[in-house]
Design a protein around this nucleic acid. Structure first.
Length: 407
RNA sequence: CGGGCUGUAGUAUACCGGUAGUACGCAUGCAUGGGGUGCAUGUAGACCGGGUUCGAUUCCCGGCAGCCCGACCA
């Protein structure tokens, strides 16, 4: 894309009402726009990043048998009454509103009931299971206090997968596969080395759930990490008993701040029971469906990546999620036109700074936006192209052939 | 939800009970052309409502909005 056609502009200074690094940088660089506290719109550059992350997650979910669908945002009260989660005393995060008929409806704050209700219609035999539907959607939570930019919003974008299995053994098998898929996702998103599987409270059907916690000072959660085994324990379940059970040693555990970027949870029959979600096995016996949930905050993951990857000049996107792979900068009007045309013919991964502004301003913007490869053409570069990686100090002059290999 | 703080151009800020100033941005022109370049001219502002006062952006009250700390985060 030509930068002259991008309506967003960079800001020299962050708005005074933002404290979080992710929000400051993403707003200054024109990736997001703040609508209100805890609510952000994703601008063209921001949407490209969100889409890249989404595609990584989608690929990994499909690999383990996930089938993508889309549940509605408007939710029927009757469905949620079955699990008693319409009740304000149980769930106070709902955004509720009314139809013109006067009927109460809610905006999705999670998906268990919606999926259970849908699958009730389609699941009745052991032959129908297991199934692993998932969706990406905007989720609404009426947080008492939103904070930390896109790390904890009132409206956010997430992926949720639910597993529907025939028995505990089948459930466990998938649960392990899902954990492995999650590790791949965070690795591919560039934060694998900082993201630890963390034992957290499990509710009534399993002792633990598993969170994926990314170590950063911006984190809201406190975890205790054993670096040798790469296992962490959330503060909420960090007791002597649990430490012993997990065969950890208290002296090895280091307290860290972390962001929960994903979690996997065994639900047992918590939702299948109230929805009468059962099936007949080979012997004609009626059995409960065993469920699990697997969530990732996609927009939160984007914010986490910024918290991890930035420097004093701006964002430093990992290649896998960067809005574009190349930032082509011409220092004299029209000089980059041919190169842009050639690259563009092969790839959509080029942002071309064709604006008529000073070199310094272009470089400053490029650093702020954080695209991995900066390509400069000018009178100095002759027929060659100067390549500089965003996180590198030096640059080098290369030919077009070298660039095209990077595509 | 409890506590604290704050609302001034698009952004960041200053001053003031008596015509609101600066920087960036934006527009125009000239110069410049490898790290937010220089000069000139122009553009644009007191969250909303009420009160006190001769006069309120400034003081008071209410509302709305934002940030921070705590609680919460299924």
């Amino acid at each position: 894309m030509k930068q002259s056609e991008l309506f967003t502009k960079t800001l020299r200074e962050a708005p005074k009402d933002e404290e979080a690094i992710n929000a400051k940088l993403l707003i200054r660089s024109g990736f997001i726009f703040k609508e209100m506290a805890g609510v952000y719109s994703f601008l063209p550059l921001g949407l490209r990043v969100l889409n890249k992350i989404e595609n990584i997650i989608r690929e990994e979910m499909n690999k383990i048998g996930g089938t993508e669908m889309r549940t509605s945002v408007l939710q029927n009260k009757n469905v949620w009454e079955k699990s008693n989660r319409w009740n304000d005393a149980v769930v106070d995060a709902w955004f509720k509103t009314k139809l013109k008929t006067g009927a109460d409806i809610g905006l999705s704050f999670t998906n268990e009931e919606a999926y259970s209700n849908i699958l009730k219609q389609y699941v009745s035999s052991y032959k129908d299971l297991p199934i692993y539907p998932y969706d990406f959607k905007n989720i609404f939570r009426n947080e008492a206090r939103s904070k930390s930019g896109i790390l904890r919003g009132r409206e956010f974008y997430w992926k949720a997968l639910y597993s529907f299995s025939r028995d505990e053994a089948e459930h466990e098998k998938f649960y392990e596969k899902a954990k492995a898929a999650y590790r791949n996702i965070f690795k591919r998103a560039g934060i694998g080395h900082l993201t630890y599987m963390t034992f957290a409270s499990g509710g009534s059907f399993s002792k633990f759930s598993h969170e994926f916690q990314t170590i950063t000072p911006a984190g809201e959660d406190t975890i205790y990490l054993d670096e040798s085994s790469k296992i962490a324990v959330n503060k909420e379940v960090y007791t002597d008993e649990v430490i012993a059970e997990l065969k950890l040693k208290k002296n090895d555990m280091i307290e860290k701040r972390a962001i929960e970027v994903g979690n996997v949870f065994s639900l047992g029959t918590k939702f299948s029971a109230p929805f009468d979600l059962r099936y007949r096995n080979e012997k004609g016996e009626e059995k409960d469906v065993i469920m699990g949930s697997y969530g990732i905050g996609v927009s939160r993951l984007m914010g986490t990546i910024v918290e991890v990857y930035h420097d004093e000049r701006g964002i430093v996107w990992p290649e896998s999620v960067a809005p574009y792979r190349f930032h082509l900068i011409e220092l004299k009007s029209g000089m980059g036109k041919d190169l842009y045309r050639r690259l563009r013919a092969k790839s959509n991964e080029v942002l071309y700074d064709d604006r008529e502004i000073s070199a310094g301003e272009k470089f400053a913007d490029a650093d702020l936006i954080g695209i991995p490869y900066r390509l400069v053409v000018s009178e100095k570069t002759g027929g060659k192209i100067e390549v500089k990686k965003r996180n590198a100090k030096g640059s080098k002059l290369v030919s077009y052939a070298t660039i095209s290999k990077l595509l």
